[in-house]
Design a protein around this nucleic acid. Structure first.
Length: 118
RNA sequence: CCAGACGGCCGGACGACCGCUGGCGGGGGCAACUCCGCUGGAGGAAAGUCCGGGCUCCACGGGAAUACGGUGCCGGCUAACGGCCGGCGAGGGUGACCUCAGGGAAAGUGCCACAGAAAAUAAACCGCCGGCGCGAUUUCGGUCUCGCAGGCAAGGGUGAAACGGUGCGGUAAGAGCGCACCGCGCCCCUGGCAACAGGGGCGGCAGGGUAAACCCCACCGGGAGCAAGACCGAAUAGGGGUGGCCGGCGAGGCGCGGAAGGGCAAUAUCAGACCGACGGUAUCGCGAAGCGAUACUUGGGCUGAUGAAAUUGCCCGCCAGACAAAGGCUGCGUUGACGCAGGGGCAUUUCCGCCCUGUCACCCGGGUUGGUCGCGUCAGGCGCGCAGCGAUGCGCGUCGCAGAGGAAUGGUCGUCUCGUUGUCGUGCAAGCGAUGGCGGACAGAACCCGGCUUACAGGCCGUCUGGCAAG
RNA sequence: GCGGGUGUAGCUCAAUGGUAGAGUUCUAGCCUUCCAAGCUAGCCACGAGGGUUCGAUUCCCUCCACCCGCU
């Protein structure tokens, strides 16, 4: 990469191969509001996030809103307590949209403990 | 007031905290970037992708014809359209109004099942009619059965549809055979730019339906799409080439290594079942770019067997992260890392193991999961005026109004609002007030614009129609 | 973004504009000591809505769902 990488506080996974790697080799924790997949990395860079909402959940508006809630909940949580050296994939499900926001944040914390990276 | 028709419009509001992103200004930094402030940040359909255009590349000397695809009453509007407006015709509705692929059936071809005699050059099942012959009967007028050769198409029956309809005359019975009206065709007149409408005359019925069957006629149409297309591309890694320098030993059996090897044939292939996706070949359609269709299999992989397999030729492929240049696709060196040795690394020492390994300089090429442009000032929005029945056009004024890039335009909370519903109070009642619950549609820009189509909670405005009531 | 195709019985597939059919499944009966096989009978369908036509699974339009290809 010729341009210097942007110093974003919350870098995202973008390539399909990265998502597949996390799904294949990482650990999975389904909770009520979402499904979390995590894969530790060797380096000590900031945690990277990926967001997945399948077409089964709904149309474009519903998927967009589901993804944004997950993104915001993750942003608030990890701004308070940053993590390093891990790739996280958050998968939205039907309940994500109607879940109380505080409960959704608790769901993420609970899922983090289940996959053993918290 | 009730029911309805048409047109236009809105698509919850405000605030707090925490975020994302475009622009402008300022500060820091060599720069990438970062901080602060101000300001902008989804839709009427952003959707489906059904049409039309801009823009870009490709193709192209002009014109015509053919083929293919599309459109199809007339006139107008428009950049253009399969869109819109106005008019005409047909059908529906008490009405406002709605619906219609609505050219040609007298160029030709095809089709019209079942039923029916007959489904379109006509024809005659049951029938009707008079004549002739035999016979029966008779109140001597006639009546009836059967047969023969004829006339007729009114009635019956079939069907979605039966070679004009109704009535009168006429006749043996009938028939546009004659007449009136309706329909139809032709001609003329009037109105209209036209589609068409109205009127008159003539004809005596010719021409069933189907063109969302082929077709004919008229008009329109090059191909692909912003992943179009253009530019930059360094360090490092990686590919290739040339030159200089350095370089201890060894092998071609197995094995191993190497940036890079398969197929077919020749004295090495064989058998089996399968597939037609991919590739190839052939044919067909259009002028080509390009797009598409059909067929085939010397093509493909799979399973099993034999074999130590070389060499040569041809073809394809590979070295290579798309493309190309030059070169190469092998291994005993006029060489260049295969082995050993040597050098370096795995914290240090010895052994073992693993990994890396000529070095320097110059030059060349392509352009990726990189960056930049394309990228938002335009068939633009709003207001007023003028022209027009209208679509729309013209003039003036005014505004600047998203620009992401796996994808921003948000997340959370509160107050209000709207709908619905429960409870309480009040009231004869409609209702009003208080309070609580639930809900607020359809849906997310991806180059842009004009349409069409489809989805949509709730609400507002205007015009009109039918009905009821009151004045 | 561009383009193509499919939708018929529970399943796999047929069908010139004229009564929707085959195999299989299911149900019942026969056969058998019982089961299987076999035989016989039955049940079940044109993705949705409009239009053209006397008549539509078939022709035309719109919508829905699914699949495939190219870039």
């Amino acid at each position: 990469m010729s341009a210097a990488p942007k110093a974003s506080p919350c870098p995202t996974l973008q390539r399909r191969a990265e998502f597949l790697r996390v799904a294949a080799k990482g650990r999975k924790a389904p909770v009520h509001g979402l499904v979390l997949q995590a894969l530790p990395r060797d380096d000590t860079g900031p945690a990277r996030f990926g967001f997945t909402v399948t077409k089964k959940v709904g149309n474009a508006v519903v998927r967009n809103r589901t993804r944004r809630r997950l993104k915001e909940a993750a942003r608030l949580l990890f701004a308070a307590s940053p993590m390093t050296g891990v790739d996280l994939v958050l998968i939205g499900r039907d309940a994500t949209r109607g879940r109380n926001f505080l409960d959704l944040q608790d769901d993420i914390r609970r899922a983090m403990r289940k996959v053993g990276v918290a």
